[in-house]
Structures are given as C-alpha cells and as structure tokens.
Design a protein around this nucleic acid. Structure first.
Lengths: 346, 346
DNA sequence: GCTCTCCATAAGCCGACGTGATGGATCCGG
DNA sequence: CCGGATCCATCACGTCGGCTTATGGAGAGC
C-alpha cells in the first residue's frame, strides 16, 4: 500500500554517527557542538542536511532543547560499534607508525646476506620488536627489478663506478638509490707475493688517519699484469677487465666463478690472483696463505640501497633505511664494515 | 629513540575505508573508481589526501598498477566491519521508513479512548505490524502540552467553534492542528420529551443525503430553556453556556460531571437534560428511555489531531495521521464515526 | 616498436560546510 | 508577571574540499 520511499541506500557516514552519538550523549546540540569542536549552527545544519538526505527527522524540538527521534536513536545506537571499529583501525595504524608492527621486504646480494643483512635485522629487532622482515637473496639487477614492481621494499645492491649505465641507469629509473658505503676491491694474492710491499714498521698501522684512495699497503694493479686471474660473476668480471684496462693491460682470466669462497681457495692454492670486494672477505675469512690489499687506483664498488620514491614514508621501511645508513656509515659502531685491512692476516 | 609522530588521532572516515576496500577488492584505482561511481582522478587524489593526513602511504605503484601498503591493508581489512555496521544501521532506518518498525506516542481525550483510538491502532496494526503504540488518555490541554514538549507525537483533541482562544490559540502555538471530523453536540432528553419532533415517516431516514447543519430531527435549544441542565467538564460547561446564550437564555445547571455515562443515566432518570457530543454516545450506548437529537443551531465540536510541525515526516507518525484522517473522513468506511443519529435509538 | 592501460597531475568549477549575527521560543528567578 | 538566560533555527557570506575534464608518463603485451 504505502510505497517504501527508498529500498535501502541510506548512505550513512561515520561523521553522521559521531554527531548523533554526541547529541544523544549530551542531550543538546549546543553542548555536542562544543565538544565536537565547532559552532552550534554548524552542527544544527549538518543534522538538517542528513535529515534531508535520508528523508526523516532525526531530532525534534522538545521544550527548549531537543529529543532524538526513533531514527536518530537508531543512528546514535550504532555509533558505538562503528566508532569502535574505526578506533581499532586507527590503533593499528598507530602501531605501524610507532613501529610496533609492520613488515619490510628486503633483498640483497650474496655477500651482504651474511654481513649487512643479519646485522640490520638484528638491530631493528632490538629497537622495534614488532617489525617483521622477509628476505630474498638476489643479485642487484633482479633485486632492483623486484623493487620496481613492488615485490621488495629495499634492495641492497652495489654499483661499480665504471658502469654508470648497465644495471642502474636503466634499471633504477624512477627509483631512489641511497649510497651506503664504499666497498674496496682488494687484490687477493698468495702470501708473500712479490707485488706485496714489505711490512714496514709495526704490524698494526695507524688505526684511523689512513687516506682513502691510496692505503699504505696499496698495490699497483699493473704489477700483476702477467698473473693468471680468477674472475667472479659476469658483472664482476666486466669490472675486472675495466680496472685492468685503466692500468694498461688485459688480464689473463683462467677461472670464472661467482662463488667467492672458491675464489679465495683458488688463490690459496696458487692457481691465480683475484680482485674481490672487501665485504666478501668480511663474509668469509681469508684462508691461510692468502693476503689482501687495496689497489693504488682505489678500485671499489659502492654499496647502495634502492627503494621506490616515498618508500621511506612507510614507517618500518623508513626506519630500516635509517638503521641501514647508521650501520654502514660508522665503521666504529659497525666494525665489520668496511673491513680493516689488517684483518686480512687472520 | 624515534618519536612516534602521532600518538593516535588517525581520524578515519567510513568513506576512506570504503575507498580502500574497493581498491583492495578490484586491485586497481581505475576500476574501483568506476564501481564507486566517480572518476579515476577523484579516487586517486582522495587517496592522496588521506595519505597526507595520516602521514603514511596507503598504496604504492607496482608495475602498471598499484599495491596496498601495510597501512592500506589495515584500513581495507577493517572496512568490512565498519561497513557492515553502517549497513545494519541503514537497514534499521529502512525499517523505520518502510513502517516495519517505529513507535507512535498517542494521546486522546476520554471518549476517543474507546472509539477512535482502538480503531486507529488496530488499522495500523493490520497494515504495519512493526509499528508500536503508546497511549495516554488526557484532556486536550494536557495532551497538547505533551505534544509541545515532545512527550507525545499525536494528540487527538477537540475544539469548540466558540473558543478560538483558550486552549488552542494559546496552547497550539507553533503546533499543527489537523481538523478530523465534526462531532455533533446532541441534546439528551428523556424519551418522549415534548421538545422532540414526532417521528415522521419511516424509522430509518435517508442514509446519506442528510444536510449537515440542520438534521431532519433537529431540536431547537430554546425549547429547553426552562429545563434543568446537566453539564459536563468545565470546558463543556462553558460551551453549553455559550450555546444557550446564542439561543437567548441562560440554562439552569443543577448537575456537573465529566462522566458522560453518568450524564446519560441522569437524563434517563429524568433529573435533567444535557448536551453531549455524539462521540460519547458512540462510546457508550444510550441507556433506555433517553433520546438524542441534534440542535437546530448546529452545535458541534471539531475533533482534531495536534502534532509538532514536521512530525508527519516521521514515517510511523505520518502514516498514523494518514490512517487517522481516513478513518475520520469517510463515515462509510468507518461506520462508528461520526455516529448516525438513528443509532441513538439502540 | 606500437598501442593500450593505468596512474599522476593540472586547471577549473561548484557545492558543502564553517563562522558570526540575529531572531524566536522556552524556562527560570525575582 | 516580567526580564534574563538558554537553546535552537535561520541568514548571509566566505572558504576550501573535492569532483570533472584534459593531459602526460610509465609499464605491459602484441
């Protein structure tokens, strides 16, 4: 008989519930408006707008004040439920913001897996227990691609100064590259090799005031032009060729492996010499009989972290980046990075 | 160490949850925007605004599309709860609008309690089972006051044409007065009283085509100027005086009671004559030996319903008013109102 | 390499919503 | 019985949020 005016579609808003809950609680539009933080006319006509939208009065005048209608009571009654749920969501957001929860998806190259990464995760765990990590070991190109398509939040990668183009200029387009630390490329030669300078003076060098490019014990690559070389992964191999070229020769490469432990043992066995990042030596101690030394040309790679722009605004990710920078920026706090030269003797 | 940016106060809005739930469901801002019914940029920058407000990204680009962050997932996850609660409230509003629930607080004067009111409540109950009633018998001034201060939704009252002032012009200020029906004031006299016209013609008069002001069997008040009168409640007494005055005499009032059953019995016992509204006779049949007749001067009262302005926009109240008008407007559908003269013989 | 799709951004417009001032009605105390 | 205090409704006005259309850039698939 009577047409139902609207089948449903009373599009309620949490703000509407908040308003009516306040009116119900304080029994007065004026006081509710005061508590909610705006003027009485604002609340008054806001209620009127809602009434117009749903087609029913929500309040009626009663004496000097007002009274909620059935419809108004319905809305006020549901307010607690809705506002509690919103509060719950808000609390979870606060947990994320306060680093009491959250997740960071991390990827890094192999030698970082056993050095930077465990340190980083442990440090975060100490300060922010609720933040969870996932980790996937991957070579820089793959790790960066994973950042690009959103599968990874932070990729720890490296970049050789020479290749301004290949995996980075192309791959990191639109991403943010944070330079973390310089990782020296060290020559690995059998102990007592002729190219090594004699240990002049005391065994422990001046601990801190060592100039960067030419370390006291640096070796000139050119002195090894006639050696047999052991190369690493394809990218490392390319960089070896480049470094040698800048020293004026083309190395004779007899062995290739991306397994840096194998490289060290090959050097120990006298099969050849190699150029390895210091971090790999931190990851796995040099076998006996192998010495490491920087090059006079200051060969190195940069360890970087790659993220999407704005990723640091995700609290857990931003904090992880902060800690990552702290760990890699201060060798004193983080004794394993960059490794000290004299540890090559261990 | 890290300052929590905001202790809480992530003021979420149900709209925000709706948006992110849609984005989570459809995996794309464009599609979610389509489903939600607005353009892609609208949704895009609405999300951006929320991000700026809560200080965390909610979505990140992933390849061609997007991916929700932890924060985005939190919000989307809570959406179901909040939207379900809103839907529940909306459903209750729909029940109110569809007259499947609701409440009407009714008040009426005594003789309506046993005539109009039960009929009204029964009719509503037949058509709209969910609507509940409360009822409070009260004389018009009190009933109207109750409407005024919001304790009653509909007051059924009456008004004499003479007193344009006392309980109405003053009491119904700012209220809406709906005229429902004319209620004739009938003279009650002992059967066979001299003032009664002889029953001319058949016992059953023409059922419908009776002219309003002067019914065929009408009696001139002036013929009863020397009778002893029985008066009703104070307001009725005032009106009796007024009617008699307009007929040119002042009645001799020997008895006063607002109990109309008592009035009838007094007339039956020959203690005097009275002027009673037809509705009271409907409420309680005339005792044997009493005849009723309208006056030639067409004395009557108006039965009215009084509500607050806009009260008819409350669905249950509006529908009650509709039914009330229907019951009182059509004597054929509502045979008890106004009462037929020939029923005074019963 | 071309095209299609998806998201981000810019410019512009309109309506929602806030404030302050004012008026009417009610309640209360003198 | 009257004047002050309180509460709500209304009005006029200014601002800002938010939507739209148009456009650009980046990624994915053929």
């Amino acid at each position: 008989m009577t047409l139902t005016p609207l089948p449903s579609a009373f599009d309620l808003d949490s703000q509407t519930l908040r308003l009516l809950a306040a009116v119900a609680e304080y029994g007065s539009i004026t006081r509710a408006a005061g508590v909610l933080g705006f003027s009485q006319p604002a609340l008054s006509q806001q209620i009127k707008r809602v009434e117009a939208r749903i087609g029913m009065p929500l309040v009626t005048r009663a004496g000097r004040g007002i009274r909620l209608t059935d419809a108004g009571l319905v809305i006020a009654r549901h307010a607690a439920t809705v506002l509690a749920a919103l509060e719950s969501a808000s609390g979870e957001l606060a947990d994320l913001a306060g680093l009491r929860s959250g997740q960071v998806r991390l990827s890094a190259f192999p030698s970082a897996s056993s050095t930077i990464v465990p340190q980083l995760i442990r440090s975060m765990g100490e300060e922010h227990e609720g933040v969870r990590f996932t980790y996937l070991e991957a070579e820089p190109p793959e790790a960066i691609a994973a950042v690009r398509d959103g599968a990874i939040d932070i990729a720890i990668a490296f970049r050789h100064p020479a290749d301004r183009d290949d995996p980075f200029a192309a791959g990191s387009e639109g991403l943010v590259v944070h330079e973390l630390a310089r990782d020296e490329l060290l020559l690995l030669v059998p102990h007592g090799h002729a190219a090594l300078p004699r240990p002049s003076g005391p065994e422990h060098p001046t601990p801190s005031a060592a100039p960067q490019p030419a370390s006291p014990t640096a070796v000139d690559l050119a002195a090894l032009r006639d050696e047999t070389w052991i190369a690493g992964c394809p990218r490392c191999r390319a960089h070896l060729l480049d470094s040698c070229a800048r020293s004026g020769f083309a190395p004779t490469i007899a062995f290739e492996t991306d397994n840096f432990v194998a490289v060290m043992r090959m050097v120990a066995e006298g099969l050849g010499v190699a150029l390895l990042p210091a971090l790999t030596i931190t990851a796995s101690p040099l076998p006996p009989g192998v010495a490491a030394a920087p090059t006079t040309s200051g060969d190195h790679r940069m360890i970087v972290a790659v993220t999407r722009p704005g990723a640091d605004r995700i609290p857990a990710v931003g904090e992880t980046m902060r800690i990552l920078r702290r760990l890699t920026a201060r060798p004193d706090d983080a004794p394993r990075l960059p490794p000290r030269l004299d540890r090559s003797r261990v």
